Simulated scan of single mutants.
Amino acid sequence: MFSKQEAQQLKKDFWTAFGKSFPRKWILYDTKVKDMAFKFSVDNKKAEVSLDIEMKDEIFRNAYYEKIWSLEDILKDFIGEFHKEEHFSLENGKIISRIWVQKPGVSVFNKNTWQEIFEFFYDKMNGFEMFYYEYEDFIKDV
């Protein structure tokens, strides 16, 4: 087990190593749609790449989700199999819509899995971005 400080340092080292392994500017929060962002996340059991639609107005959130969901088969061509949840509950209780891919069996605390996570992050986020750039005008026209 790691102390809180050791865990924080490992996480910091992880993100620094990822940035050095795959140096590039990702879209992330720069989707040009307020409260819609691409995210990387990793913990002690899995890594995820997601598209989070976080609008407070449920009508707009659902409209964006439905737009993206209408492109389901095309999205699969870019990122492979994925999970989706229209009413995803975050740990803080906030309800968002989320589309994500997951890699189980890896850990931010196990340096032996870092390269596997980095490659997963790069491959899946790159696929999400290519999809978004290709269909951005359609998605944003809500």
Rank of each mutant, 00 (worst) to 15 (best):
D73Q: 12
E48T: 15
V101L: 05
Q8E: 14
E6R: 04
K4M: 07
Q8T: 07
D13P: 02
P23K: 05
A17R: 08
K32M: 07
T16L: 13
E134F: 05
E81I: 05
L28I: 13
K4P: 01
I117M: 07
F82M: 02
V101D: 05
G19F: 08
D73E: 13
S50I: 04
L10Q: 02
L51Q: 09
L75F: 14
A7K: 03
F78C: 12
K45E: 08
F138C: 06
W15V: 07
L10H: 00
S21P: 01
S21N: 13
I53S: 01
L51Y: 11
K46E: 13
K20F: 03
Q115S: 05
K56Q: 14
K12N: 11
V142I: 15
E119G: 02
A47N: 04
K32R: 10
P23I: 02
K45V: 10
A17V: 04
E81D: 15
G93N: 07
M130F: 12
Y65A: 06
Y29D: 10
I53E: 02
V33M: 15
E134N: 11
Q5A: 14
K46P: 00
I117L: 08
F88P: 08
R61F: 01
K32I: 02
G127W: 05
M55Y: 08
I96H: 06
M55F: 02
T31W: 00
Y135K: 14
S3N: 06
K46M: 13
D73V: 02
F131D: 05
S70E: 12
F40M: 08
I95N: 00
Y133W: 14
M130P: 02
E91I: 11
V49D: 01
T31I: 03
R24D: 10
F138Y: 15
K25H: 14
H87G: 08
G105K: 10
E6Y: 04
M130V: 14
L71W: 07
F138A: 06
F131L: 07
N126P: 03
E81Q: 12
